[in-house]
Amino acid sequence: MAQYFLIFISAIFVNNIVLAKFLGICPFLGVSKKTSTAIGMTGAVTFVMTIATIVTWLLQKYVLVKYDLVFLQTVTFILVIASLVQMVEIILKKVSPSLYAALGIFLPLITTNCAVLGVALLSAGNADFGLLQSTMFAIANAIGFGLAIIIFSGLREHLEFADVPEGMKGAPVALIVAGILALAFMGFAGLA
């Protein structure tokens, strides 16, 4: 039990996927202008990241390693993720139109979200991780992603009203705010 707890704390706070590992920066900067879109993106990422990690972990263990094909890892994983995103999109559209309406526009964006491929590669590459640990790791990282992007979107909503110097408007000031947020997350470093 303690092991799972540690995976969670470590992935959410100490090694936050966005602010410490620099994965998923594109959606972090791209869809964080409003808190509502940030929440939608978090939902879509959690969904895809968890399923993708489970599928790629199984593929890694029972196909790639078994038949000595690990050099095909990158090609296999990205194809799995791309087709998974597409499949999730089609299934959601049929099964739950309301959820599809909420997540719809974010799903295609996820294929190029390096956080999903990153987490899949990290848990497939970690020899200590069984299927359950990998699933936990994926969920924890998705929560970490959500925490970072939702906090950041809240900060950016306030930034709209701030008096920012002309040249710093837009991306530069957003990045500096992200830097300060990362600094705050470094405070968790002693936890693990």
């Binding site: 602010l19 410490a20 620099f22 040249g167 710093m168 991306a171 530069p172 000031v173 957003a174 990045l175 500096i176 992200a178 830097g179 300060i180 990362a182 600094l183 997350f185 470094m186």
Partner: peptide
């Protein structure tokens, strides 16, 4: 040290983008 760690990356890139825009 902060510039080698994660926060420094964001802050340095923020200022460089501002300069490039200029």
């Amino acid at each position: 040290l902060v510039f080698v760690l994660a926060p420094g990356a964001f802050i340095a890139l923020g200022y460089i983008i501002a300069i490039t825009n200029k």
